[in-house]
Design a protein around this nucleic acid. Sequence first.
DNA 1: AAGACGAAAGTGGTTGA
DNA 2: TCAACAACTTTCGTCTT
Length: 312
Amino acid sequence: MNKDKIENKIEYRKKCPECGNENLSKDYERAELVCRKCGLVIDEEIADHGPEWRAFNNEQVEKRARAGPPTKYTLHDKGLSTTIGWKNRDAYGKSIPSKQRSQLYRLRKWHRRTMAGNSNQRNLIHAFAELSKISSQLNLPRSIREQSGMLYRKASKKNLIRGRSVEALVLACIYAACRMAGLPRTLDELSDISNVKRKDIGRTYRFISKKLKLKINVPTPQTFVSRFCNALKLSYDVKKKANEIIKESIRNELTSGRGPVGFAAAAIYIATVLNKEKRTQRQIADVAGVTEVTIRNRYKEIAKKLSINIQP
DNA sequence: AAGACGAAAGTGGTTGA
DNA sequence: TCAACAACTTTCGTCTT
């Protein structure tokens, strides 16, 4: 209890190790602690110091679930399970007469069966273990994890699971949740950390988004800028500049038909050159998952249309 | 030596008949 | 279901710093 308070205080008093600036902003959406002066990401997991909610069987789930609100979509019973005790005693500790005892046995049996005995529940336990593993690897904020879990639960309710790979389904839910939160990951990123092919994740995603009638907008280049800039350790100014370039490009209809990822990468490249925080095309291409060629093509188009002069 | 450039051929996904 | 198509990638030779 006290320990939590102390930790919070320490976090609050943090300084930027790069420039000593104390003006830090917490970005809970992205789960980052960011220096407002130089854009350095100081702590990438501020929103998620919670325990690992992994459960591999019903007993573990019940042990960990207890009664603590808020309810968790990432637990197969939303953390709301009730247990019938194993002792043959009543609430006062008296032993229960044998006549009622057989009744109690029967009650327990069916309780167990309805809890985790059916394949649906077992499937959810498996899926949420998977979900927890993957979202840890991606450092996803809790809100997105919960959203993914909710989507999976919905899919399960509509019987969309049977006959499909659990892993692909989980990845598709994560992909959808990220996009809904405005923090899209690329299919390649998801594919890289799992052993599901990009194509399969995409297909499964389309499947569930159609069946669940999800309304998800096409990602704009801006949604990628912040993440890529952080990965490249670029300053806040570059971020801002890149966003301006994108906004201007959208107005000039340069973005239509172009992949948003490559476009974001090109805008960042221009911004780095303009702000003299040079990164090579290769560096940017690597974090964005596109090729240098794409960056070149895009940035030529932008520079031409917006008449931005790039001189080294 | 490293980075930027651009041509040309290849690949995977979308679209419309 | 198939072919056409645009976006993007791969590869590679050349130029610039």
